[in-house]
């Protein structure tokens, strides 16, 4: 049995331990393979930009490589890596917000509102198409407040448990449930015309 095959059979936590203890690059590569797409999906749904999401997932992986020793085996590896990706995504949002404030202050406010209305909603007659439908959902997601959006994505798109989300966001389970509920309510209001 080769090393790669042996490693593939290991769990996430065993792989990170192998990487921590023996600095096995193959273990790191396997973990990257396992988590790059789920993380990309999560970050993209949170930010709505493919290129920036790719950069953030890459940064997440680099951070994981550099700070592998900060992971402690008491937590799930998925929780740890999602937390890193989530924090980097939130930082990106903050940066973007600062940039938007600056650009808005330079522009005419009437133009800005018009741009938002035109960009975020597609005409209902085109909503039948699946790709457009997903685009509409994505844009609706981006209209939800980030604190609600994050937990809705983790729960309904990534399929995580309340406990995992609670660990990831450092919130109580009650707060997580409440935020998920509010996010969903807002999203449902935005997507009323789709279903």
């Amino acid at each position: 049995m080769t090393l790669d095959k042996k490693l593939i059979s290991l769990s996430d936590e065993e792989l990170i331990k192998e990487f921590q203890d023996n600095n096995t690059l193959e273990a790191y590569e396997i973990l990257v393979k396992r988590f790059k797409d789920p993380l990309m999906n999560f970050v993209y749904r949170f930010l709505g930009d493919r290129d920036i999401s790719t950069d953030i997932v890459q940064d997440t992986m680099i951070k994981f490589y550099l700070k592998k020793d900060s992971y402690q085996s008491i937590a799930k590896f998925s929780t740890w890596i999602y937390t890193i990706a989530g924090n980097l995504s939130k930082n990106e949002l903050k940066r973007r917000k600062r940039r938007t404030i600056l650009s808005i202050s330079n522009d005419d406010p009437d133009d800005y509102t018009l741009q938002i209305e035109d960009k975020n909603f597609v005409a209902p007659d085109r909503a039948a198409d699946n790709s457009i439908k997903s685009e509409i959902i994505q844009k609706a997601l981006l209209k939800v407040k980030p604190i609600y959006r994050e937990v809705v994505i983790l729960r309904d798109i990534e399929g995580m448990s309340y406990d995992e989300i609670s660990d990831m966001t450092d919130l109580s389970i009650g707060t997580v449930k409440s935020r998920i509920n509010r996010g969903r309510a807002h999203l449902q209001k935005l997507l009323k015309h789709i279903y």
Binding site: V32, K36, D37, Y44, Q58, I62, I157
Partner: peptide, 26 residues
């Protein structure tokens, strides 16, 4: 229904050269 909509959303994957770029950087 909302949950179903969200679950049916297409998965977004990393570009093909993602791993190559990452390992080169490392």
């Amino acid at each position: 229904e909302l949950k179903k909509l969200l679950k049916d959303l297409p998965k977004v994957n990393t570009p093909d050269n993602f791993e190559f770029n990452l390992m080169t950087k490392i």
